[in-house]
Computed example of a mutant assay.
Amino acid sequence: MSTTVQKTPAPIYKSEAGAEAIARRYREVLADWPIPAEQLHIPTREGETFVLASGPADAPPLVLLHGSGANSSTWRGDIAAWSRDFRTYSVDLVGEPGGSAPVRPKLNSDAVALWLDDVLAGLGISRTAVVGMSLGGWTALDYAVRRPDRITRLALLCPGGVGKQRYGWILKEILPRLLGRHDIRRSAQTVTGLDAADLGPVLDDIALTFTHFNPRTERLPRVTDAQLAALPMPVLTLVGDRDVMLDSTETARRITTFVPNATVEVLPGVGHAILGHTDTILTFLRTTTTP
Rank of each mutant, 00 (worst) to 15 (best):
G47E: 00
T128V: 12
A19W: 06
V202G: 13
T289P: 09
T256G: 11
T217K: 12
R177P: 14
N214Q: 10
R76E: 14
Q6D: 12
G193V: 01
T74A: 08
E250W: 12
I12D: 03
L123R: 06
L114C: 15
E265I: 13
V145Y: 04
H182S: 13
E218S: 13
A229Y: 10
A70S: 15
P60Y: 11
L64D: 03
G132M: 06
R84A: 09
V259K: 08
D118E: 05
T152N: 08
I151L: 07
G161C: 01
H212W: 02
Y89F: 08
A81V: 09
P61M: 05
L178R: 09
L120E: 02
D92I: 06
G99I: 03
D149L: 14
G122D: 05
T278R: 09
A113W: 11
S2W: 15
V202M: 14
E16S: 13
E250F: 14
L194W: 01
S109A: 11
L228A: 02
G276K: 07
R24N: 14
G163R: 00
L40A: 04
V91T: 01
F50A: 11
L156K: 00
L30S: 12
N71V: 10
T49R: 01
V266G: 08
V91Q: 02
T280R: 09
L52T: 08
G269T: 04
H272Y: 00
T280I: 08
G276T: 09
I274Y: 00
D198S: 15
L52P: 03
A37C: 07
A81D: 07
W33E: 05
R177S: 15
G122T: 06
F284V: 07
A252P: 07
H41D: 13
D118Q: 08
R27K: 10
S134P: 01
V131G: 01
T44E: 02
D110C: 13
G77N: 11
L120H: 03
T8P: 09
I79N: 04
A81I: 04
R76Q: 13
P268E: 05
L114Y: 13
T209P: 04
S134L: 01
P102A: 02
W75V: 03
R222E: 13
L175K: 14
W82P: 02
F210L: 01
T237L: 08
V103M: 03
A19T: 05
W75K: 07
A111P: 10
N108H: 13
W75Y: 05
G160E: 02
I174E: 09
W75Q: 05
T88E: 03
